[in-house]
Design a protein around this nucleic acid. Structure first.
Lengths: 163, 163
DNA sequence: CCGTGATTGTCATTAGTAATGACAATCACG
DNA sequence: CGTGATTGTCATTACTAATGACAATCACGG
């Protein structure tokens, strides 16, 4: 059987292609997909008036808190986020988007828009909607947490066979 | 805008999820996805009566020949492939599937079938066909080489920002 | 109020993986 | 022949991810 006859292969192939392209398109902004994920989540919770600690952020994005340190370091050094004292817990830092962070996130989303247009170019609007509906049902069934990319997850240290 | 409103995000998320699950499901067979890709390609060319050198195999799968050494080493040590003298070129090794390699590949494909059933469970047959047709048009437009997973590609050494 | 154990953020260390370079053997071709 | 390219291999390097340890702080019971 041919690999291209399997929808799972096509999905994986296309998904990886998209991820690679997105990473490449994002690089000129000084961001990688993990940075992008952090920014998006920070804006989302900011809208709700919440302040997240690094730990909470790490839990939501399914990354280890040790890794979150580096991500926030990167973003803070570029002035996209701010670490403040957490009002309720002096151990924790409240992380929030800066004005500049908002701007850069907007640019990053425009990159994503462009990529989406390029990848979905061969589909009509109706077909695009059809595809989106199917994909949403699949992600729901797979119980993928909304807005969290599995590529950010902590990879488990494997013993014998590896990618 | 919510990440889940972007088809490219859903595709990437789902594709990664599938790749992770496949790698996990394949591990008990002592294989990783790269091994699987090699086996599938070897069977394909074997059907046409061809014999491929490691270099040719590496070119087709878009991996570096240095990396192919390790992949073939793994498979040969498990008795799934055989390195023979290439009839036309004494520098090259003709790599081919063994009987056992065929068997294990069959098992691996059954793993893939099971995964496909699980992932696509919420869709009817008609919807599945619809999805497959859409995906095929997208991979064609993206000029993704048929049957070659981008995850095997040599990653370029990046200077500043990284995944 | 004090002490014991957990949590947060950080850093240093380790382990694992991927890219690069170098090599001998062989080829291609003049 | 002989010069330069190609094949497969290995060693080395560069990088990334995982782990462990740490001080500061919290939570909670006694």
């Amino acid at each position: 059987m041919d690999l291209d006859d399997r929808s799972v292969f096509l999905l994986s192939q296309l998904g990886r292609h998209i991820a690679d392209r997105f990473a490449g398109d994002l690089a000129p902004l000084g961001l990688n997909p993990a940075h992008f994920g952090v920014l998006v989540h920070l804006r989302q919770v900011g809208r709700d008036g919440q302040r997240l600690s690094q730990q909470q952020l790490a839990d939501r994005l399914r990354v280890h808190r040790n890794a979150m340190v580096g991500l926030v370091d990167d973003l803070e050094s570029r002035g996209l986020v701010r670490r403040e004292r957490h009002p309720d817990d002096r151990r924790a830092h409240a992380v929030e988007l800066t004005e500049r962070g908002h701007d850069v996130l907007t640019q990053a989303e425009s990159v994503a828009d462009t990529l989406e247009d390029a990848v979905l170019a061969p589909l009509t609007d109706a077909e695009h909607a059809q595809l989106a509906a199917l994909l949403r049902r699949l992600t729901a069934h797979a119980e993928l947490p909304p807005g969290v990319h599995p590529g950010l997850h902590r990879r488990q240290r494997r013993s014998s066979t590896s990618p």
